[in-house]
């Protein structure tokens, strides 16, 4: 069995008495897109910095591509930090090429690669522009390209979508999917759930330095009870007596939300509505979104942390 691309084992990080990350374990298989979710201050950036060996964990161990330190395999790892910045006076292609040479490419190869990437992702005309002349979004794209210029096996992106417009968010999603298509592993942190939902094969949710969830998107959805939304002018309270219904709440005028018991099928509710009858104007049995899962999992703690 091939070892995972990335493995964290009981990793903790303390700053004095403050615990930033606590006993975090995580395993990212090769060739997948792994989401790293959590509210502000959850410890995402600290964890990513520890993975990259920029920070040392207080305890626990980290294996990156089979090596105890990311620096030993730096040629095979790409990193985009949360706060984006570039050398202002350097040209776009030169920045990409510089970071690629730091990752082991020769100067010529790095230059070719920089131009190739800029062309492929629509920045060809700005290759010779100084980065200070680029818009924020373009600068960020240049930085993303710089992080993947050496074609790394493992790419770590910290909040890659923040600050990008919807069109460029799609371009970035395309970049991430391209990476997976070529068998690369991508670990990215975000708090925009839509991206995680669309992209991730697996994800981890952490809050206050602790893991709350680790699994596939489908598994994440199943962590909260299934619910059905209906719209009717009849009285739906009779549905409450059904065995599959856990509870019934009003969700505004003529709108109701029905929480189902674990393992129950939304079809039973629909059938009951026809039988009773309750005349429906709409029936929505969609799975909970990742957004709901996230709020449900981290909600109270995150609110507290945000105002701390």
């Amino acid at each position: 069995m091939t070892p995972p691309a990335l493995e964290l084992n009981q990793v903790s990080k303390y700053y004095g008495d403050f615990c930033a990350v606590q006993d975090l374990s995580l395993s990212v298989p090769h060739g997948c897109i792994y989401g790293f979710l959590g509210p502000n201050g959850a410890g995402k950036t600290t964890t990513l910095r520890m993975i990259l060996d920029i920070l040392r964990p207080t305890s626990g161990s980290i294996q990156v591509l089979g090596s105890p330190s990311a620096l030993q395999v730096r040629h095979r790892v790409g990193y985009l930090p949360e706060e984006k910045g570039l050398y202002k006076k350097m040209k776009a292609w030169a920045v990409i090429a510089y970071f690629a040479t730091l990752k082991g490419l020769s100067k010529t190869a790095a230059r070719h690669r920089a131009h190739e990437l800029l062309e492929r992702y629509g920045l060809k005309d700005f290759a010779n522009a100084r980065t200070e002349a680029l818009s924020k979004g373009m600068g960020q794209k240049v930085q993303v390209l710089a992080s993947i210029a050496h074609d790394p096996e493992l790419v770590i992106l910290d909040e890659p979508f923040s600050g990008l417009d919807p069109v460029n968010q799609e371009v970035l999603e395309e970049i991430v999917r391209d990476l997976r298509a070529r068998g690369r592993t991508v670990l990215f942190s975000t708090h925009v759930m839509q991206h995680a939902e669309r992209l991730c094969d697996r994800l981890i949710i952490i809050a206050q330095g602790r893991r709350l969830f680790d699994g596939s998107v489908g598994e994440a959805r199943r962590t909260i009870p299934h619910r059905v939304r209906i719209e009717t002018s009849d009285d739906p309270s009779r549905l409450e007596s059904l065995p599959s219904v856990a509870s019934l709440h009003s969700d505004g005028a003529d709108r109701w939300q029905i929480q189902l018991r674990e393992g129950s099928d939304p079809h039973e509710i629909l059938r009951a509505c026809f039988e009773l009858p309750i005349r429906l104007r709409s029936f929505d049995a969609a799975e909970p979104s990742l957004h709901e899962v996230f709020v449900q999992l981290v909600g109270p703690g995150a609110r507290e942390a945000a105002f701390r």
Binding site: D53, I54, Y79, P81, G85, Y87
Partner: peptide
């Protein structure tokens, strides 16, 4: 100071010690 205020430093430190 440029590298630090631009946070380029993090990318650098993921490549060099």
């Amino acid at each position: 100071i440029e590298e630090k205020s631009n946070r380029i430093i993090e990318v650098l430190l993921s490549s060099v010690t």
